[in-house]
């Protein structure tokens, strides 16, 4: 049976993890490779690296990091942040990234999704969507959630699927950082409108929240950062509890 995925997300700046981590047995908490190896070891199913300071200048640094992760880590990983061209995606995949995630650039230039999916296959093209509710309607936001658009979350999700996205990474800005749970209703609706895998993001605070994302929200994967980095929810314990609740996970 296909299992639900648990996905830690690492924020990267100039090839180093930021926001701090508080992980036992790490010699260097800022080293993304060491952290990635540790996560792979304890049962993370996949990793996301988000380049939060993505600029042309530091692109080389990110590529070097991607290469090192690919060399040393034996689970799949996605790289996102500031990706806007076929050439850049090619360089990331050539360096060993399994998937790339695009966000603002997909909204600004939707044809990019078609181009990437035709050239590299839809399995490696993740479209990240940040959205929040405005007057009860889920609206897509850009540039790390700072720029609102008129795009409806569900319309946009359908469009990215049609254009060739292989997966959607949905972050609810209303839930992100609250530790009050994922946006399960929006997740359920997303699963109804598209037939590609959905990664839930934003709001993880307890083991029950993950359970809700998978059962009520029908998500295929759940992403979180701080609850994993600070050991608030140890991944082995999370997966054991999910299994007890009858949710298929890889143990």
């Amino acid at each position: 049976m296909l299992t639900k995925r648990i996905v830690p997300c690492l924020d990267i700046k100039n090839g180093r993890t930021v926001k701090g981590v508080n992980f036992v047995n790490l010699r260097d908490a800022g080293d993304p490779i060491e952290l990635a190896k540790q996560y792979a070891e304890i049962g993370a199913d996949e990793l996301v690296f988000l380049d939060i300071a993505a600029t042309l200048e530091n692109r080389g640094t990110t590529l070097e990091m991607v290469l090192k992760v690919a060399e040393q880590v034996n689970i799949p990983f996605t790289v996102g942040g500031g990706i806007s061209s076929v050439k850049h995606v090619d360089a990331l995949l050539q360096s060993g990234a399994d998937k790339v995630s695009i966000n603002s650039s997909a909204v600004n230039n939707p044809d990019l999704i078609n181009e990437l999916s035709q050239k590299f296959g839809n399995q490696c093209i993740v479209v990240a969507i940040d959205a929040k509710q405005i007057n009860g309607n889920w609206k897509v936001h850009l540039a790390g959630g700072t720029i609102p658009t008129d795009l409806d979350l569900f319309d946009w999700a359908k469009e990215v699927e049609q254009r060739g996205a292989g997966e959607i990474l949905f972050t609810s800005m209303d839930n992100d950082g609250t530790k009050a749970g994922f946006a399960t209703e929006a997740l359920t609706k997303l699963s109804e409108v598209v037939n590609i895998p959905i990664i839930a993001s934003g709001g993880a605070g307890s083991i029950n929240h993950f359970e809700d994302a998978f059962t009520k929200g029908k998500a295929d994967a759940a992403l979180a950062a701080s609850v994993f980095h600070f050991g608030e929810i140890p991944i082995p314990k999370l997966k054991q509890e999910l299994k007890k609740q009858g949710i298929p996970v890889r143990l």
């Binding site: 296909l2 299992t3 639900k4 839809n122 399995q123 292989g166 590609i196």
Partner: peptide, 13 residues
Amino acid sequence: NNTVKVPQMGWNT
């Protein structure tokens, strides 16, 4: 077919 999500993505037995 579309009774399952396509692509299959993740860990299976």
